[in-house]
Design a protein around this nucleic acid. Structure first.
Length: 321
RNA sequence: CGCCGGGUAGAGCAGUGGCAGCUCGCGGGGCUCAUAAUCCCGAGGUCGGGGGUUCGAAUCCCCCCCCGGCAA
């Protein structure tokens, strides 16, 4: 039996990349020669330099790790050639691969993207699927070209979104699905058995990098929109608003809404105004209200609302902004 | 030295020098066909740790530990 052996470099950074890296490492025809990831970044209150999840996994498995600040240098180009890779696999690496590197591996560069391309190209496909109330989403295995998530599709797998799907649950499912698609389709691709399907650019949509302000809740929006916003943006950047406690006049504190659900009650409430409806703590939105279930005040622990109210009884008549 | 808030009963919070409190939970009892409802009684604290000031410190001063929000 001829043992196939593809020299492969993996590019990836966050948690999402890890199950796919793991799947790749398990394939006996893949010879992982190293991992490229973003440089360690200062993180947390202490600003400690923290390695990416991909780096931690790679070090645990004694794989070489490279962390170039930029891929657009002569040094990276020379080094990439000297490694003589047959294949490069990219999963949420965090930077665009420069065109001058694309031709180095004979089998090209593959990417696992967390959406059904051409829908939701770009930085935040998982959040976008939740935010737009999609019934289904999935992962795409594609060949990288010079554009951003524009290359031809090799294979896709679809998944149904849960009614209450949130970022974390979908993130985990898609990571697993990404691992599956690598196990299933990589070898057929390398054997030339899978046709490449060009994307229909007319159907393409682009998602952008998420910023803190995207988490700001506007109570004028519908409860459903806010509900999606909470699910898409928790834990980061989090869905938040502000509350001025009566006991601390003029101090506006940030209040994160960690979990909530739209109310059935048709009784109207002014946007941002809280009231008890059918023994549920409900905030007025445009249209139906939103029932709060888990919240966190700045400087405090995350709490179920009934616990929260024990310490802040005035909250049942609060006004959020 | 990045900025700010916090640590008090099992949980959440009040309490700025003079008896350690509130809501909920927990235990026992009453009422009830019954109850997560209601009433009565009760247990439960090294006030994060150490040092200092004081007749007296949860409270003021110094040092340390831990948690969170912002920022990155």
């Amino acid at each position: 039996m001829i043992q196939k052996n593809y020299r492969t470099i993996f590019f990836g950074t966050p948690d999402f990349s890890v199950p796919i890296l793991e799947a790749l490492a398990d394939l006996e025809f893949i010879n992982l020669i190293g991992v490229v990831t973003q440089p360690d970044k200062p993180v947390g209150r202490k600003q400690e330099l923290t390695p990416s999840p991909v780096k931690m996994w790679a070090e645990k498995h004694n794989l070489p790790v490279w962390q170039p600040k930029s891929l657009r240098t002569q040094h990276v180009l020379d080094q990439s050639k000297s490694f003589t890779p047959d294949l490069c696999v990219v999963v949420a690496y965090g930077k665009i691969i420069p065109a001058n590197l694309l031709d180095i591996p004979q089998h090209g560069w593959l990417n696992v993207h967390a959406s059904l391309l051409p829908k939701y190209r770009g930085a935040s496909p998982i959040q976008a699927a939740i935010l737009n109330g999609e019934k289904t989403t999935g992962v795409t295995l594609m060949k990288i070209d010079a554009g951003l998530d524009t290359g031809p599709v090799i294979d896709q797998q679809t998944i149904m979104l849960d009614q209450a799907e949130n970022f974390e649950s979908l993130h985990d499912k898609l990571g697993q699905l990404g691992a599956d698609i690598i196990k299933k389709s990589l070898l057929p691709y390398l054997d030339g058995k899978l046709p490449l399907q060009p994307q229909d650019n007319k159907l393409a949509t682009l998602t952008t990098v998420i910023s803190k302000e995207d988490g700001r809740i506007e109570w004028k929006k519908s409860a459903n929109d806010i509900y999606r916003q909470i699910r898409a943006y928790t834990p980061w950047p989090g869905a938040y608003c502000f509350w001025k406690q009566t006991r601390k006049e003029s101090v506006e504190q940030r209040l994160k809404i960690l979990s909530a659900k739209p109310s059935n009650s048709t009784h109207p409430l002014a946007p941002g105004h809280i009231a008890l409806q059918d023994s549920h703590l409900t905030v007025g939105c445009g249209g139906h209200g939103l029932i709060l279930t888990r919240i966190q005040l700045e400087g405090k622990k995350p709490l179920p609302v009934d616990e929260f109210i024990k310490g802040y009884p005035e909250f049942i008549q609060a006004v959020l902004s």
